[in-house]
């Protein structure tokens, strides 16, 4: 699959994320002749361990993340950050987790928006909202370079694209900027070629950033 970088909107200190930012950055993509395509959506859930006795120790991961992508509807990904582990499973693994009753979904987030074709690049702008809520929790941007599936071989062209993009956005004088944090994929046992597991790990990294900025 094509290599993908995940960027997220980092608001300036003292400012909050609002839908106006999403509108402006979407206009930025359209301003460079991005052809607006269909909608896209990913769903992310945070699972928390259920302790039978709250006073007794619990020898397990306290929480983990689950994510599914619209492009890959039959698969689901679980990520344990502490153990640097990403599991790929059929989507009905969620039903097994429910039946086991050892972890429960604490929060579910939808990441959804429109995609834009820019030559060999596919850009997806998305808002992060809690399921059944419209409150904006974050803005993410997926950048795919369609001809290449190697992270290493695409690094230069991706960096150049993101540099140009950052320059364009900075002209809008918005209260924040996009950030790209590349996780250490090798810690998760992931290497080239790029896969959905790589995307799952990038989302975990971004979610940690978003949660930190919401707390602040």
């Amino acid at each position: 699959m094509p290599v993908k970088w995940l960027l997220h909107w980092q608001p300036n200190a003292g400012t909050t994320i609002n839908s106006q930012v999403l509108t402006e950055v979407s206009q930025c993509v359209e301003g460079i002749n991005g052809i607006k395509g269909g909608r896209w959506k990913s769903t992310l859930s945070i699972y928390k361990a259920i302790a039978r006795d709250l006073n007794a120790p619990l020898e397990c991961a306290r929480d983990f993340l689950g994510i599914s992508f619209q492009e890959q509807p039959n698969k689901h990904y679980f990520i344990l950050r502490g153990q640097r582990l990403v599991l790929e499973a059929d989507s009905n693994i969620q039903s097994i987790m429910e039946k086991l009753q050892s972890y429960r979904t604490r929060i579910s987030l939808n990441i959804e928006g429109f995609q834009y074709q820019l030559g060999d690049f596919l850009v997806k702008m998305g808002k992060v909202v809690i399921t059944h809520s419209e409150n904006l929790r974050g803005i993410v941007m997926e950048v795919e370079y369609l001809p290449i599936s190697s992270l290493e071989k695409s690094r230069q062209i991706m960096e150049e694209f993101v540099d140009i993009w950052q320059e364009l956005v900075s002209r809008k004088s918005l209260p924040g900027h996009f950030m790209h944090i590349e996780p250490n994929f090798s810690e998760y046992g992931l290497s080239d070629p790029y896969s959905f597991q790589h995307t799952a790990v990038q989302y975990v990294t971004v979610m940690i950033q978003l949660m930190a900025s919401v707390r602040n």
Partner: peptide
């Protein structure tokens, strides 16, 4: 494990 889950599974 011993304390994991609403019921043992």
């Amino acid at each position: 494990g011993p304390n994991l889950g609403a019921v043992s599974s």
